[in-house]
């Protein structure tokens, strides 16, 4: 437990550092740091409706991030969540298109399955390349992101194109309202339930199944598990596929919920924020839930910043980048800080 507490504390310290750094940046570029931080807090949590807005962004992020965390645990560095998210949304959109006219009770589950299968497929080929020929999955999943973006542009300006589109951004035809799982606000019983079920299932898988313990071991030392008769690649690939499927599920939720359609280049930072969340949470499922709400809050505040303090919404990207910077940097300094703290408290 104390190990887990330390890692949570460590992440908090990183986030704090990142906020301090960003405050300094904002202050030197002529904004009041206090005011900026204040309006972030307001936009994220304090304003009426802010909690719902934070959930709207946080829930899909959580679903993707928990998948990323599971692949990280098993030793696969899946940075293709963005591409898996896109392919999932494309697969769901195609499924909805094909089944148009069928009752919602059939179409919605079918789209969920299609989306998850699409995301899993986008994780499958990098996984197989890694197992068969040792191709680094960092490279393949990253390339997969570009391929998925291009594919998204193709389907939204080709087969699924909305002919009545305004032309600014290529989009698919809007999903029939009877198939929508939420309005544009993006928080509905279906979405909340999906996130809760996913979270619970993944928590059980990680913390209460033989698979969870063994995949964790495989991620840290695959050789050792091999000497006990495990097939390390099976554990790894299974985790990798789960990771892709969950990103695909998040893509499906975005398509059938708040967006109601897919557009070329929509939510371009979703998968990367999810990676950041998994890192901040140190791949723990509960930590991922907490961190997702925090980053969901930041995303919600991003829309609020231009109105309140005249900062562009991309100021939030600076904060995200700063957190990423501190999280991935060597943590020896922070570790020492925490150790000093521990000694003081006895």
């Amino acid at each position: 437990m104390s190990g887990q507490l330390t890692s949570v504390l460590r992440s908090l310290v990183f986030v704090l550092f990142a906020l301090l750094l960003c405050s300094a940046i904002f202050q030197t570029s002529g904004f009041s740091a206090v005011q900026v931080l204040n309006s972030i807090a307001e936009g994220a949590f304090l304003r009426p409706n802010a909690a719902a807005q934070s959930l709207r962004w946080g829930l899909p992020l959580f679903i993707t991030a928990v998948g990323v965390a599971i692949s990280f645990r098993a030793g696969y560095f899946n940075i293709g969540a963005q591409g898996q998210f896109y392919i999932g949304s494309i697969a769901a959109a195609i499924c909805a298109e094909v089944l148009t006219g069928a009752p919602a009770i059939i179409v919605i589950p079918a789209c969920f399955i299609a989306g998850m299968a699409g995301g899993a497929f986008w994780a499958l080929w990098p996984g197989l390349l890694r197992i068969r020929s040792g191709t680094d999955e960092v490279i393949t999943t990253l390339m997969g992101n570009f391929l998925a973006s291009l594919l998204l542009i193709y389907v939204t300006s080709g087969p699924l194109k909305d002919p009545s589109g305004s032309g600014q951004q290529a989009s698919s035809r809007p999903l029939d309202s009877s198939y929508r799982i939420s309005d544009s606000l993006g928080v509905s019983p279906v979405i909340v339930t999906t996130a809760l079920v996913t979270g619970l299932a993944m928590w059980l898988l990680v913390n209460r199944s033989a698979f969870g313990v063994l995949a964790g071991l495989a991620g840290r030392n695959g050789q050792m598990i091999r000497w006990l008769g495990a097939k390390q690649w099976q554990l790894g690939l299974a985790s990798f596929l789960i990771s892709g499927a969950l990103a695909g599920l998040a893509g499906t939720l975005e398509f059938m919920g708040p967006n109601g359609r897919i557009s070329s280049g929509f939510l371009p930072a979703h998968g990367f924020t999810a990676i950041l969340i998994a890192l901040v949470a140190n791949t723990s499922v509960i930590g991922t839930a907490v961190a997702s709400l925090f980053f969901g809050g930041l995303a919600s505040a991003a829309l609020y910043l231009p109105i309140m303090v005249g900062l562009p919404a991309s100021a939030i990207d600076i904060i995200n980048a700063a957190i990423a910077l501190f999280i991935t940097a060597k943590s020896a300094f922070v570790d020492r800080l925490l150790r000093v703290g521990r000694r003081d408290h006895g």
Binding site: L204, N207, R208, S209, A210, L214
Partner: peptide
């Protein structure tokens, strides 16, 4: 843990 189903419930 490796002797048996990977998905069985375990109590850490």
């Amino acid at each position: 843990l490796l002797q048996g189903s990977l998905l069985r419930y375990v109590r850490p």
